[in-house]
Design a binder for these strands. Structure first.
Lengths: 216, 216
DNA sequence: TAGATTGTTAATCGATTAACAATC
DNA sequence: TAGATTGTTAATCGATTAACAATC
């Protein structure tokens, strides 16, 4: 699939998927752009435009049937397909702090198309121990081994949960070794080469943005 | 301050702030829109337009000096002021799971203008115990007490880390009690009344969005 | 068929980019 | 003064919204 979806559209796909799952759990078979829009806070036009773009880029979106709405089942499976959720991408995690632990213990990486294969940290007391995840266990290695590991195993993606001061250097090692996407959970802005996908989860940026919209 | 900044601009303010702090640590006094843009991945025009909007809405942005650039010190303090980081907003946290624990132990809420005053959970073994935060301790209460607590204490903001199935109901209780902003860390789309600020951190949405940009 | 809703084209809106005059 | 860079206006771009014909 040649991705040429706009980022706003791309960002809405997981929400369509989630709504499809909700509707499916209510045994609904069809849903109109109007209803979809209302429950997600979009406009009906936006929904139809999104699906039109998907059809253009990915062949099909949700089997729209004039007069009836979209097939919920198709909506779900097509969102999963377009987001590539069923194709597991190998992934390493760098920085096994509290956030990483919380994620490993609770977050469904597999559901997001990500298979965690290795974790790295600097602390001697962590190196060599096991990181438990929802799906199994992952060995925590010395971050010094990261370049060699990447050269050998060629992970597709990386999760960045390291301290801010080493975030850029770590990202550089990862992109140099051919990682195609970085999920950046550090509170810094990192730069990646053209062609490498970057998703930032800047928790503090998000909360700061909220802060100024609240009166004391 | 009458917020009438566009959301894209608003979302860039924390990044200006962070860059200002970095520059300040390097003892830099001035920075041009060109340099600022390069290090943050924006364009110089975007930076100048942002600052123009800030000047319009908030009086001043970064004391631009033609020929010299912007004052780093002003940039920092004005971003802090506009984001209201120095005015602490009272806040409750609902759902003391692993993510909440990781945040409480590590995340600098105060730096974001948020003061955590209470936490709520349903589990009897958690209720009555203490949640340690960076700044101190917070009592974990029975979530059944949430409406009364809110009615009495009138918290300004809320952090939603509860299970997805009770997210909307919890949000309703909070907004009914007059909460002005919700930081939503649950993986569901919640609806809030007009006038209530909502910041979503949909971790799985973010990772899914990354997933489809990576080849297997 | 009539009603509903999609698919698609056109209009609008807003954000980004470009250009340049003002000015330190 | 000359060079640099802001402040600001205009042009461009892209996304959202609106409108309506096609069609189930």
């Amino acid at each position: 699939m040649r991705i040429k979806l706009s980022y706003p559209t791309l960002r809405r796909l997981p929400r369509y998927l989630r709504q499809a799952e909700t509707l499916l759990s209510e045994a609904r078979t069809h849903v109109s752009s109007k209803e979809l829009a209302e429950s997600l806070g979009f406009t009906p036009s936006q929904v139809r435009q999104d699906f039109a773009a998907l059809k253009e880029v990915c062949g099909v979106a949700a089997d729209g049937l004039q007069g009836y709405g979209y097939r919920v089942e198709s909506l779900k499976t097509n969102m999963e397909r377009i987001l590539k959720l069923t194709e597991q991408k190998t992934c390493v995690l760098v920085g096994v702090g509290n956030l990483a632990l919380a994620l490993a213990h609770n977050f469904d990486f597999i559901r997001c198309g990500i298979r965690l294969d290795a974790a790295f940290d600097v602390l001697p007391e962590k190196i060599g121990t096991i990181l438990r995840t929802l799906e199994g266990e992952v060995l925590i290695r010395d971050v010094a081994e990261l370049p060699d590991y990447c050269a050998l195993q060629r992970p597709r993606a990386a999760i960045l949960t390291c301290p801010p001061d080493v975030a850029q250097d770590t990202a550089d090692i990862l992109t140099l070794s051919g990682v195609q996407g970085i999920w950046n959970l550090t509170n810094v802005d990192i730069r990646v080469p053209e062609g490498v996908a970057l998703e930032n989860v800047h928790l503090s940026d998000s909360l700061m943005t909220l802060s100024c919209r609240i009166d004391v």
